[in-house]
């Protein structure tokens, strides 16, 4: 601020002298508008959800039936579907995601091979959600259908594997989601692995550790909070992912525990029903959107907090 006043010279005149302050206000306006947008989103969704909030209260979260024709709304099946698909996706994506992160942060293979794998992972992140959905319809759905038939015939007595098996199911959505969150896990894990101080790594080698003893005994434990943060942030992404899930999960609003049964998530519910919703259904969907926002924000918040903790922890060692 002070520098603005010390010099604007006679050359550029009085308008130019005022301009700097003016520009400062414009940039501040930009900053305020970003904050305003977030507030506006919350206000708008909350305002539209109000009728449903007043009508159903917290029972909305535990209600197991979503029946627009009878104005009966409970979001539990979708809550279960959201958490279940996200957890399946993480279980499937975590091992390869972490393996790739380790692979990219160590020197197993020459740089070109690593760059190639990195490019591939970035490409995975760049493919649009609908394209995953389209691919899933033609590749993953038939695969899960035949796998499901085989499994449910043999292990159908277990509640999680009971039949009949459908191609569009919880598991199908989970499998495709796994591909979609893999880049998130890899990128953040890799960053925290690379940030492990050299001295720790070299110390382990100096004590006679093999490469994997160093990785498992020293490097991974040091980077662990970062890997945890990566997993949490990936969970947040998986819960909010919409189109691929809406195309693959079968969009049933019946509560079911089987991996091979059609299900639904909060996001797929919104995608399917908003276009044709009227009256109380709009309010109920807005309420569901509010639940989804709360869920993802809580998860992301936790992820960011862990990430910041990691940065602080490793900042001390050099």
């Amino acid at each position: 601020m002070t520098t603005d006043k010390t010099n604007s010279g006679g050359i550029e005149g009085s308008v130019a002298r005022r301009l700097p302050d003016f520009f400062r206000w414009i940039t501040a306006l930009g900053a305020v508008s970003a904050v305003f947008v977030l507030g506006w989103i919350f206000w708008e969704v909350f305002e539209e959800a109000k009728p449903a909030l007043e009508e159903y209260g917290l029972g909305f979260l535990t209600g197991a039936h979503w029946q627009p024709n009878r104005d009966r709304y409970g979001v539990l099946p979708f809550l279960v579907g959201t958490v279940a698909t996200a957890v399946i996706a993480l279980l499937l994506a975590f091992p390869p995601g972490l393996a790739i992160a380790i692979f990219l942060s160590e020197d197993f293979l020459p740089r070109t091979a690593r760059e190639f794998v990195r490019f591939v992972v970035e490409l995975l992140a760049a493919i649009p959600s609908v394209v995953y959905g389209l691919w899933g319809i033609f590749v993953v759905v038939p695969l899960i259908q035949s796998l499901g038939t085989w499994v449910t015939e043999r292990f159908g007595h277990l509640p999680f594997l009971s039949g009949p098996a459908y191609g569009n199911s919880l598991l199908t959505a989970g499998v495709v989601l796994a591909l979609m969150v893999l880049p998130t896990i890899t990128a953040i894990s890799r960053a925290s692995l690379v940030a492990v101080p050299r001295t720790l790594r070299e110390g382990a080698y100096a004590l006679g550790a093999t490469r994997w003893e160093a990785i498992l005994g020293v490097i991974l434990p040091t980077a662990a909070p970062g890997v945890v943060a990566a997993t949490i942030l990936a969970l947040g992404r998986a819960m909010g992912e919409t189109m691929a899930v809406a195309m693959l999960i079968g969009n049933s609003s019946r509560l079911s525990w089987s991996l091979f049964a059609p299900s639904g998530t909060l996001a797929s519910l919104l995608a399917n029903q908003f276009g044709e919703a009227e009256g109380m259904q709009v309010a109920a969907l807005m309420y569901a959107a509010l639940v989804l926002v709360a869920l993802t924000l809580a998860v992301n918040f936790a992820g960011e907090a862990v990430l910041r903790y990691t940065e602080r922890r490793t900042a001390g060692i050099r």
Partner: peptide, 18 residues
């Protein structure tokens, strides 16, 4: 940071409402 964490469908919900 919060905005990046919001699912893209919520942007749609917002535009639908607004």
């Amino acid at each position: 940071k919060l905005l990046t964490g919001i699912p893209s469908i919520i942007c749609g919900v917002f535009a639908f409402a607004a």
